[in-house]
Every structure is written in structure tokens, then in C-alpha cells.
Simulated assay, not measured.
Amino acid sequence: MSQPQAQPEYYVGQTDNIVDHWAQRTAQDCCAYLLPSLQPDMHILDVGCGPGSITLDLARHVPQGRVVGLDIAAAAPALQKARSRAAQEGIANATFDTGDGHALPYADATFDVAHSHQVLQSCRDPLQILRELRCVTKPGGFVAVRVWDSGSWIVHPPNDGVAAFRAMTGRVHAERGLGPYAGRNLHVWARQAGFDSSRVKITTSSWTFRTPGERAHIGGVMQAIGQESEFAQIALKKGYVTAEDPKKIRDGWQQWIDDEEGLSAVINFELLYHK
């Protein structure tokens, strides 16, 4: 466990639309590669938990154990939703904390599983987060990490609004030192962070959005990111987009949502490390 660092910025932001999207995630959707390794009495840490839907699903898989969801202070609205949902659903073995994944507020060898979903690609120092996850994991436990690879992202058919969205997010990512190829570098980051490569298993899975409901779901969150998020605010302030571009982006995603031939797919890379 490292000393706390300055509070990191949250690169997307916590608007209601974005949080509601994250709250639809499940353990089966997001960490199926981990589920066969779970035992009913395990203690699990979920770093970057957001509104906690994955966290609460993991808690159901370890009824004699416990799960701690952790996110940064900027995610406070999402954490409050997570706590409310836990109370409403009667899930007593899940709790939620505030903290920085670069300096986890837990003793070494505390958890049987340290899990993180779609966090490393949005952090300045993914190696440090991997080190922290490994440190708080007990010997014999598991580190489980999933990240998408935006360099593999297909949106079909293309249009000008979607292209403007991708250009905007790409420029903001690049300014913050975040590249589009996180997924394919996950095993490299693990080696650089000191993981024993012989204990690292890498798998892949994909997200595909094709049906009208799926297009409305993913297109809706992209509209929110393009208009409401920190991405959009930074891009406008820096001059990466004009005042008219948010409407262009919104309309482009709506065109894609309404297109019966619309399809989106992306590859996720998954790391399972047996410590």
C-alpha cells in the first residue's frame, strides 16, 4: 500500500445519464472470466465500482464473504446510489468506500480477490494501480482486471457526428497521456508492474450492440458523454470542438441509434492473476 497521492480527476464525470448507464452492468456481463474462481466465503475488493451494480452482483456470489466497492471522491453520487441499492435489495455483505486506486487504503494481503473493471485505460498510472491490487491480495488469491481496447472499436455505419465524437475523446485521452490500446497492453503492464508472467492468464471477450434496445442504450450514453461529461467540457475549453459540435455529436449518435443496420463492437481484454 502506497502513500496517498493527489486526488485524481475523473475523466468522464458523474452525470445522471452516465451513472444510470454504469448501473446496468452485471458481474456476468463484466467479469464472467472471474466467476469460476470465486468461493462463497471470499473477501473481494472492487476498485472503480461506480454505482456498484457489479459489486452487488459479486456479493451475491460470496454469501458467506464480503465485498468492498471503492471509488474516488468525484464518484460520490454513484457511491450513494450503490449504498441505496444495497439497502433496497437487502445485500448486507457489501460496503462502499472512498479512496484512490493508486494508493489503496487497505493493509497488504487483505482480500482474496482484487477486481477492477474498465479503470486502467482511464488512469495516468495503470502500473501503480496493478501494483496496489497485487499488494492487497492474499497469497493464493486473485487479481482480476478487465479493460477495453478502443483501438478495436467498430461503429457501423460511420457518420460525421460519431466521427466528431471519436476525434474529441481521442484528443482528450491523448492530452492526458491515455492511449487507445490499453487492452492489448494489459499483459505488458502486468509484467512491468512486477507480476509473474507464468501466473497471468489473458482472455478476451467482446461487446456487441445491434438490436434497437442495445443501440439506444450505448448510443444514449455516448450522447451523454459528448454533451454532459468532463470530456465535452475540456474539449470545448481547449477548442477541440466548436459550440455547434455537441449537437452534431448528439445527432450523429441518434442517426446511428435509428439506423436498423447500426452495429457497434469492441474487444475487452481480461487479466486473471493467481498470486
Rank of each mutant, 00 (worst) to 15 (best):
Q3C: 03
Q7W: 02
E9S: 11
Y11I: 10
G13D: 05
V19M: 15
H21Q: 09
H21A: 10
I44P: 07
L45V: 03
L45F: 07
D46Y: 08
G48M: 12
C49W: 14
C49A: 14
G50T: 08
P51Q: 15
G52R: 15
H61P: 04
H61Y: 15
Q64W: 10
L79E: 04
A103L: 06
H117R: 08
V119S: 02
L120H: 08
Q121A: 11
L127T: 01
L130K: 00
C135D: 11
G140A: 11
D149M: 00
S150W: 02
W153C: 09
P157G: 11
P158D: 09
N159M: 05
F165V: 09
R166F: 10
R166S: 13
A167G: 07
M168T: 13
R171C: 04
V172Y: 10
A174E: 15
L178K: 09
N185W: 01
V188E: 13
Q192D: 07
Q192G: 00
G194P: 04
S197G: 00
S198M: 10
S198K: 13
V200Q: 09
V200I: 15
S205P: 01
F209I: 01
E214Q: 15
R215M: 06
A216E: 14
I225T: 12
F231I: 05
I234K: 14
G239S: 07
I249L: 03
R250N: 08
W253Q: 09
L263I: 06
E270R: 12
H274W: 10
